[in-house]
């Protein structure tokens, strides 16, 4: 086998909320890897900040037994994504690898997809992105720089996936589990993010780390009532104070 085979994998991510410390290393790594424009104070004040992955803080319990929790939220790559059918020009669609992808050059900027997204992980370029001159040569050459007027969102580091698959094909071998790492996963100090193939129909000898985690007792998905069927699976926070130990989100 020498050509790149497409659609063989179904990518997903497991986020162990119990391990997340809310350190935001993933946010920074993503920003650098994916040429996400710099967020100035003015942008945040106008609620236009961009972060393909963000760490949300939420409170659990009633005062005084209240606890701060962290949960990283990124594009859930829903199998049944509300953002996909509404795009009039197929700029966003579901690809055979189980990912919800955004094609920048096809986007006309209706922002309809962003309305549909219940996780609010889609971002619109209100302005042409600018970087300080000293940053210009630091941009990732493998990632398109998005111009103004289009949507963008987490791509599961598509450039890394493509490179990994290509390398395996070049060396005429199967892709190894863990060979492809997303930028956020690479940066996570507590190993809370695990990216990998989660296709249940894939006959594999080695199940892979992400795949072995999705059937965990603690596994859940966000907003299940909307039936979006995300490919990002969360593992619930373990709360020793609580009966049973595991607290849901």
């Amino acid at each position: 086998m020498t050509t790149e085979v497409f659609g063989k994998h179904k990518w997903g991510m497991v986020v162990d909320v119990d391990r997340c410390t809310g350190c935001q290393a993933c946010v920074l790594a993503c920003q650098v890897e994916n040429n996400v424009p710099l967020n100035t104070q003015e942008r945040y004040e106008r609620a236009r900040g961009m972060a393909w992955i963000r760490v949300e803080r939420y409170w659990e319990g009633e005062f005084p037994d209240v606890k701060a929790r962290f949960i990283p939220i990124l594009c859930q790559h829903c199998e049944n994504a509300p953002c996909e059918p509404v795009c009039p020009v197929f700029a966003t669609y579901h690809n055979p690898e189980g990912m919800n992808v955004q094609i920048y050059n096809r986007c006309v900027g209706t922002r309809y997809c962003a309305n549909g997204c219940p996780y609010i992980v889609r971002f619109f370029n209100y302005w042409e992105p600018v970087w300080p001159e000293s940053f210009r040569n630091h941009l990732n050459p493998d990632v398109t720089v998005r111009s103004r007027g289009i949507m963008e969102k987490c791509s599961f580091c598509m450039q890394r996936i493509r490179r990994g698959v290509r390398n395996a094909a070049k060396e005429n071998r199967e892709l190894e589990d863990g060979e492809i790492q997303t930028a956020c996963q690479q940066a996570c100090p507590t190993d809370a993010l695990v990216f990998g193939d989660i296709d249940p129909d894939n006959n594999r000898t080695n199940p892979g780390r992400a795949y072995s985690m999705i059937n965990d007792d603690r596994a859940y998905t966000l907003l299940p009532r909307l039936n979006t069927d995300p490919n990002v699976i969360y593992l619930a926070k373990v709360d020793p104070d609580r009966e049973g130990g595991a607290g849901g989100h």
Partner: peptide
């Protein structure tokens, strides 16, 4: 039909 939330289905 378009909504596809669990209740809709």
């Amino acid at each position: 039909w378009y909504g596809r939330a669990n209740a809709d289905i």
